[in-house]
Design a binder for these strands. Sequence first.
DNA 1: GGCCGGGGCATTTTT
DNA 2: TGCCCCGGCC
Length: 768
Amino acid sequence: MEDFLKELNESQHKAVVYNDGPSLVIAGAGSGKTRVLTYKIAYLLKNGIAPYNILALTFTNKAAREMKNRIATLVGADIAWRLQMGTFHSIFSRILRREADKIGFRSDFTIYDSQDSRNLIKAIIKELKLDDKLYKPATVQARISKVKNALITPDQYAVDYELNTTDIRCNRPATRDIYSIYCNRCRISGVMDFDDLLLYTYLLFRDFPDVIARYRNQFRFIMVDEYQDTNSAQHEIMLQLAEEHRRICVVGDDAQSIYSFRGANIGNILNFMNIYPESRLFKLEQNYRSTQTIVNAANSLIHKNKEQIPKTIFSTRQHGDKIQVIGAYSDLEEGSIVAGRIAEMRMLQHLPYTDFAILYRTNAQSRIFEEALRKRNIPYRIYGGLSFFQRKEIKDIIAYYRIVCNPNDEEAFKRIINYPIRGIGDTTVGKIISSATTHGVSLWRIISDPLAYNLPVNNGVINKLNIFKSLIGDFMESNKTMDAYELGKLVVNRAGIAEELYRDKTPEGLSRVQNIEELINSLHEFVSSRQEQGLEDVKLSDFLAEISLMTDQDTDQDESAERVVLMTVHSAKGLEFKNVFVVGLEEELFPSQLSNNSESEIEEERRLFYVALTRAEENCILCYAKSRFHNGMSRVCKPSRFIRDIDKAYLKLPSNFEPKDSFSSGFLLEETPTRASAFRSTAPTVRRLTPIEKVSLPPSATSAAIPGSVQFAPNDLHVNDKIMHERFGIGKIVAFEGIDESAKATVEFENFGRKNLLLKFARFKVIK
DNA sequence: GGCCGGGGCATTTTT
DNA sequence: TGCCCCGGCC
């Protein structure tokens, strides 16, 4: 049994074998955190603890799956399978289904994704006749989510002085009403949103002593991964469960806490030792992932933060190359430099494309890199688009499934009541909603007995409603005998969705059909894999329960495909790549301008950058652009303060990198006299250098001018002149043509190839 | 019900 | 600049 423990270093080993009380494992980036967790669980299992008695919580399905698989190789799949391991949301939803009756839900409640809950909030705002400019659904949704995560119920909210004062100050005094109505509607609909899964679990444990006693007894050992990302609700539930036996082990890295904007509370991990004074602290400080240079650079960066648990991460791998900093002239050039560099490194070092990642702060930055990569025929995979289950055609079908399993589901109802079109328009739906609100029942209830609720519609409409009702009724009947796959297929064919989609022969239409087929395939897979596990009756509601907690991270297929990866730094957390490009390192972008209000926000951005750096195993390359298109305007950018936060000893800075704070003039790089392109007279034909007359650049309405640029005399341009273009960077003039207004220069750019520039418009300067 | 155009807007998002 | 949402129109 001790065999497998030999694979651990000393601190890992200590953390694994201590299980007698609370412990905090601070696991630096790349320090083998997952290894510790899996071995710890395996260790317990090998010591005779039943898998059923171990609760292990993660934040993603993927993390849970991977960990389970690794444990399976250590102790056998049959045992690993019975571990209580999964995401907070999936474990809690299972508990809530089991105990649903106690909190007034049915055990087959459906789950609203954020889009559903936003739609409902939007509908409520409209019904309350509130101004949706003021009550922006997304803003209200965020606020509701925040208070739910703080375990504040609508009743508490209504009387909370501080919350209401804030709402009044924001001109949104009705927020508490929206919150209250929202919760009611969810309850009537028999649905929970993501936050409810936590909130109701907390309330269940708080209000039912016998229930909490049962689960305390069951979950004798508790492990939580990524504890720095827990919110208050998750933290409180952990306290409820661990209160008596106190065998809770939380693992995380405060330096990688990057989700506070979603309610994650870094204090949960920072204060863990105060809550459990007897707890033991284990620090995993050896980084096995990255070169010493990268680890040291990351250390020097993160030490600039105040709020943290002291630790010194070290690496004993090779020193590795310095972190190269590249200043591009523009966002466009940044893209092409990175693409070029990837092509070059791949050729020289014979690397697969999977060894490269491009990490950025915002999704909007991806486009330029996509274009640059495409231009060079470099395959890439981009993360962060719409996930499979968020596509319209999939949501539509899922809405049918949801209605069949839970006809009270309001959002699903509204989605399909008139899809495919059956002549039940907004007016009718409005009447149904208003009746439902008056009587405090679900929309389905209204249409199942329109007369009883005095639904003010004519017989024609009643007829249409009846057709819909019996369509769904038939499905419900089939649900009694059919498994998820059979019924799922039946719904697609009989609801008229298939016909509608097959008629559309556009490429988008075909892809929609493919997606539907994919969904049916996944149903088939779901059913057969459950059957293999000996579960006989696999219902559609089981499928829904599973997929409602899935994300695109769980549906992505070919991870092994040979592609460069593009993603935000946030989604890169937990991943590693041989070569990482961190791009867009500019003030107001990274750190985000929206995080500029407080030191703690800047610290979170710095942690985010820390996460980015520590993704790299061998090479990390940092890029910034000196000008960037942003909100439709070209803007001059300063390099990020975070570059300066890294000890210079680990950096290879560009020769012209400004010493400090002096980047206000952004574009001006060299001492050479600069010239602009406002070129309005004769064509440049003279190859001789002639003295030039400096004129200041006339203000131009459209341009974000090159600071310090001056107009130049036309015959000051020559073939072979080296120029620096604001967007295309460095290039050499190879030819001229045309005169006056139509004068053009052909320029061979280092990173963009040959371009024809109309001199009247081109913004560049000549460099030595 | 679907299409077009104007106006508003623009982080990060494990569930 | 480009996307998304809404309202107006056919």
